[in-house]
Design a binder for these strands. Structure first.
Lengths: 197, 197, 197, 197
DNA sequence: AATGAATGAGGGTTCATTCAT
DNA sequence: TATGAATGAACCCTCATTCAT
């Protein structure tokens, strides 16, 4: 019996992505993933070493790409604060191009080694540079709680820009406005803080 | 044999809350919940009609209270914009007082009828009034996408204030600062929008 | 539907013993064990916490009993060498009374925490006292290799006495003869060794 | 692409031996055996007809050699009892030279047609001649149970000599001592038996 | 000779729920 | 009301073997 020349791996990635997005890693059924890809669960293991391996295959390439990109962005940011908007746009454009994988990572990774990635990102990756930028900009040590809250808000802004279904063009316009929003807000915040003390 | 006069229902609610918070609704094991409450799974069904009924019992009272409170708050807000900070504080104080239940609702409700409650709240409850307030304040129709993004950021701000482990006093101070942040940001945003058109 | 008042636990122990003896721990199928006991695999877990728990339940009581008995036997043996035959008989009678459990422990425990128990017994429990008795008896240090070989032979003797299907009476007669065999052999062995050096 | 002139069959035999020795026939994974031999499971079947065929190929040549050798040894033994030690040494030297295959046969053959080979050897091959030699030596019919037990002990002695990691020289010395042990023991045994009756 | 994909049954375990007692 | 045993389907994964290419 001739088998169709379809790329089985690609079909597994496709149905895996669908199921993981729909139910999360743990709840997603490998049986269903296989059924939708048209093979038995036994056959699955000729292509991936297990459920988590499939998840990794969906998420890892994007993750490595993002990390590399972020390294470039942050090194620029630390030397030249004015590159902010361009860098944000670069990051978000990348994320939009890998929207599904981001969602997998942030919202469907419970039970995998990627669980808690969002918190890791915020606390270990973004926060230190954020605090430093805030402190430098303010010329004093800014309350970490405030920094963290604003960072969370910023992160949520990104999420909406990524998941909102916007084109990169639309995102660009919005980022300009939202950056105006954030910077004006931050300046006002500093004024208030200085009034206090 | 005399039984201790403990309130079985209360113990189930307590261990249910613990397990749901720790593992989420779906992954939490009813067996474990019952074991921790000191009874068998069979006995459980004399007190609740099922796993989800227990979850509802944890979340529903708070939810009704919150909805009532929110109705009052929003009706004031619509008639007098200056009541903002007080109303926010009222809402957040309520949420802090029911922190666990909020977390159940927002982060542990996957698999229940409350799944997607956060999105429901944002889109169906908060968004309409937000859009109206923004439009009125701006004196023109503000891009719904922008409103939605800022609403999401605002929501994240609340989340952090609720979950951050702050006292109401600390929250009050932060809200004042963060309101300054938001309002200055919003004014700047309007300026930019008006420049564009 | 009335259930028969059979002791389910006992039936599981019975069919578990059968399957473990027939196929060993790893190859034995829990599904089959349950089927033979007349229940579903799900129900099994109301009685035991898992496959190995069932195995332990078969083997542990006997093991604890044997260890206690051995402690008594060996303390006598170390103070009075002439008690040998009685003590051997005591041990072997115990083992015969728990023949199946011994076989489980020695031949069917691969994959459980009891794996390698026979080697443990020989090397850690029997060998040290054997070496000491031999050395004392010979009045010099006996080659450990020889001691170990003779210990293995002794162990095999016990195995045959246990598994051979003999009554305790028959075993008693045989032990007397086999002890004569061993002791005469050992004396001769010592002569030869002394001749050498 | 030129393939290296390695002998695939030999590599399969090598990795098969390793895996079977390490995990036993049943638990050893054919996949792993093939992987270690550097080919796919599919290719395996061009060299062997199945898992058990590979096992046979490891064990059969040695087995035939041993059987032939044993026939010579036993025919001598039956005509001239004094050849005992030399014959034992011959057998054991053969076994040491094929130590791995012996272990495969005796300890790793569960699930193959060779399962129970040790018992077969003892009961069908060794026992008849042993009984005859004993009877002849004693000048009367010796209790088969005793013969069987002593045969088992003898067999265990051989096992230890084979697996103990000794050189043939060391084994020779030990056999002399152990034969003294056995023969003195056996003579004493006969005395006791004759006393009884 | 070799590949690699497929099979299909089987492995132990967990689950929310039911129900006779 | 409480018990604890039972259900039966689902979970991910492994296996020796087959076979078109």
């Amino acid at each position: 019996m001739a088998r169709l020349p379809v790329n089985i791996r690609a079909m597994l990635l496709k149905s895996g992505k669908e199921q993981f997005l729909a139910y999360g890693f743990e709840k997603a059924s490998l049986r269903t993933i296989c059924k939708e890809a048209g093979l038995t669960t036994g056959a699955f293991y000729n292509h991936f070493s297990g459920k988590e391996d499939l998840f990794s295959a969906l998420v890892d390439p994007m993750l490595r790409g993002f990390q590399e990109m972020y390294r470039n962005v942050i090194s620029q940011e630390m030397t030249d604060l004015s590159t902010g908007i361009d860098n944000e746009l670069t990051s978000i454009a990348y994320a939009i191009a890998h929207k599904d994988e981001f969602r997998l990572l942030f919202e469907c990774s419970g039970g995998t080694k990627y669980e808690g990635f969002k918190e890791h990102l915020i606390h270990e990756v973004f926060y230190p540079s954020y605090q430093e930028i805030f402190d430098r900009y303010a010329g004093r040590h800014v309350d970490p709680s405030l920094v963290m809250i604003i960072l969370h808000m910023k992160f949520e802004e990104y999420m909406e820009l990524i998941y909102g279904g916007y084109t990169v063009e639309e995102v660009k316009k919005m980022i300009i406005l939202l950056t105006a929003f954030s910077e004006a807000g931050f300046q006002k915040l500093l004024e208030e803080i200085n009034k206090e003390s």
